[in-house]
């Protein structure tokens, strides 16, 4: 992947016109981290709040981390107080159907108030009968579940908020 200065300029423009808080890009010979937070630091070689990024992407991927917009399906969110800035949003890695439980009728993977570890499974995302497990990616407490069970979510939709421990 040969990244030219104009590609970086375009990425910066794209970032500025978006509502993203952070943008992280890594190729063979370049690592780029953009943030609206002047105190933000790049967390190692992985985007701190994007635990759902699968490795080995062929192309640069722009991963929104903390999107400000509520998801259309999250009617429950409307009456809730604003999200404290330190909560971490877990977003959908792609479009798919969101499932809170491993099987129909069984209890959900996690409940509000539950403590989670980075490896704790939160939900399933189904794409044409192919189920992917989404993990918390962070140690903390589940504060909010933003999507109803068995609905279609889009890439970047906020599924959970976790308060980091």
């Amino acid at each position: 992947m040969n990244v030219k200065p104009q590609d970086i300029a375009s990425l910066i423009e794209l970032f500025e016109s978006s509502q993203w808080d952070e943008l992280y890009l890594k190729t063979q010979d370049l690592e780029l981290f953009l943030s609206t937070d002047p105190h933000a630091k790049m967390a190692g070689s992985a985007p701190g709040t994007a635990p759902t990024l699968p490795p080995g992407l062929g192309l640069p991927s722009v991963q929104p981390t903390k999107t400000a917009e509520p998801t259309p399906d999250s009617a429950a969110q409307k009456d809730q107080p604003a999200v404290p800035p330190h909560w971490i949003a877990v977003t959908a890695p792609n479009l798919g159907t969101f499932y809170r439980s491993p099987k129909p009728g069984s209890p959900p993977f996690v409940e509000i108030g539950q403590a989670v570890e980075p490896q704790t499974e939160l939900c399933l995302i189904e794409v044409m009968k192919l189920f992917t497990t989404l993990k918390a990616g962070v140690k903390g407490t589940v504060k909010r579940v933003c999507v109803k069970d068995a609905v279609m979510v889009e890439f970047g939709d906020i599924l959970f908020y976790i308060e980091p421990a």
């Binding site: 722009v62 479009l95 798919g96 890439f155």
Partner: peptide
């Protein structure tokens, strides 16, 4: 929104 900018994870994914 199907997926991220990379075509392989959006426009080129048949299942998605």
């Amino acid at each position: 929104v199907l997926g991220p900018a990379a075509s392989a994870r959006s426009y080129l994914d048949v299942r998605l």
